[in-house]
Structures are given as structure tokens and as C-alpha cells.
């Protein structure tokens, strides 16, 4: 898996709190057995006026011509709440998003994003509001993300963000998390030896 460190792009402002994973990718698309091809169904109920995805909803922000090429999703608190479906980050990355900026994320969605090289960036409410103002004033405004430096810049604004060092490392290097854990096989063996009979 390739890593992510620097990214520059435009953002689409999704001005809504508590966007749940049922909205990101509704249940009828969860019957597939693959990881790919979910991008066209992203935000299905909001993005299309019909079930067959042939009539885009012109009022939905992702469909606005000025935001068509956005690679950063700018949104509000508690993004990705609800179901643990990893189809949510699969659909966001397949659509073309590289990063999501919000005041907070639901825990499972956050972990799923890290595991899919989708960078979740937590900024304060005020910082997110400032970015909303920038993007709403000018859709072409560029946002520069530097993961090594843990910074987000937009014109004269520069904000720092926190991220767990292990998550950062894994995103930058594109590491195989399972491969890393399997290197600790001896520790797992030892632990299993210590499990009492009733907890086997």
C-alpha cells in the first residue's frame, strides 16, 4: 500500500453534523463481496434523486460543478457515526477523497479510515468554521496538508492537528499492519500459553 504525506487539493464543504455511515453508503450496496467500486454509490440518498443513480440531485454539494474535483471533504462533528461498515471509507477513497477534515470522528470510522489510507484530520470547531468560510467564499481555494508536519494550510491560515504517532507512521509508510503484528508472533504464542482453561 502506498503512503500519504503531502496532499494539496480543493475541498467540498458538507455542512452537516453527525453524518452516519448509512448516509455515506446505504445498506443496499453492502451485499457485494469485494472492496472496490463503491465510489459511485457514495452518499447515494443525498446525491441522486432516483434509486438507479441516473438523476443527480443538483442541490447536493458534491454535485455542484465547482466542487466536482474536490479531494478533501470538509464537514462537521461526529463524522462517520453508526455502523462499523468499512464500505464507508472504501466509498470515500474510491470517489477520490484523500482526507477528511472535521471537529470529530466516530471511533470505528476513524480506525477504518487509517486502515484505508484515508487521512482523518481533527481540527477545532473554530478552525473548521474558518475553513468552511474560505471554501464557501472560493471553491477553488487550495488546502495543503502536510502529515509529517501535522499541519493544514489554506491561504494565510495554518493549523496544527494531533494524530497518534503509530497512525501517522502507518499512513506515511503505507505499512501492512497485519504483517507487523505477525512479527510479534512469539508474544502471541506466549500469551496463549497463559490463558486459563475456562477462557479458551
Amino acid at each position: 500500500m502506498s503512503g500519504i504525506d503531502l496532499h494539496s487539493g480543493t475541498a467540498v464543504p458538507l455542512d452537516q453534523a453527525n453524518v452516519d455511515t448509512d448516509q455515506i453508503i446505504p445498506k443496499q450496496f453492502l451485499t457485494a463481496v469485494t472492496r472496490s467500486g463503491y465510489g459511485k454509490h457514495l452518499f447515494h440518498d443525498w446525491r441522486y434523486l432516483d434509486q438507479h443513480e441516473s438523476v443527480p440531485n443538483p442541490d447536493f454539494v458534491l454535485n455542484k460543478p465547482q466542487h466536482k474535483t474536490a479531494s478533501i471533504l470538509l464537514t462537521r462533528q461526529n463524522f462517520g457515526c453508526g455502523s462499523s461498515r468499512e464500505h464507508a471509507p472504501w466509498s470515500l477513497t474510491d470517489y477520490g477523497f484523500k482526507a477528511i477534515i472535521a471537529p470529530s470522528f466516530a471511533d470505528i470510522f476513524y480506525a477504518n479510515s487509517i486502515n484505508n489510507q484515508l487521512l482523518p484530520i481533527r481540527l477545532t470547531d473554530e478552525q473548521v468554521e474558518a475553513l468552511f468560510k474560505k471554501v464557501q467564499a472560493n471553491a477553488d481555494v487550495c488546502i495543503d496538508i502536510n502529515l509529517s508536519a501535522q499541519s493544514v494550510s489554506c491561504e494565510e491560515l495554518t493549523f496544527q492537528f494531533d494524530i497518534d504517532p503509530a497512525h501517522k507512521n502507518s499512513l506515511i509508510k503505507g505499512l501492512d499492519a497485519i504483517g507487523q503484528t505477525l512479527e510479534l508472533g512469539a508474544h502471541i504464542d506466549n500469551y496463549e500459553q497463559s490463558i486459563p482453561a475456562w477462557r479458551q
Binding site: 472492496r35 480506525a111 499492519a177 497485519i178 503484528t181 505477525l182
Partner: peptide, 11 residues
């Protein structure tokens, strides 16, 4: 998530 399901399967 499913990546973690795979992680638990393997380890």
C-alpha cells in the same frame, strides 16, 4: 472494520 476482522483472523 473489515481490515481489523482480517487482522484478528490472522493474529
Amino acid at each position: 472494520g473489515t481490515s481489523q476482522v482480517e487482522h484478528v483472523f490472522a493474529s
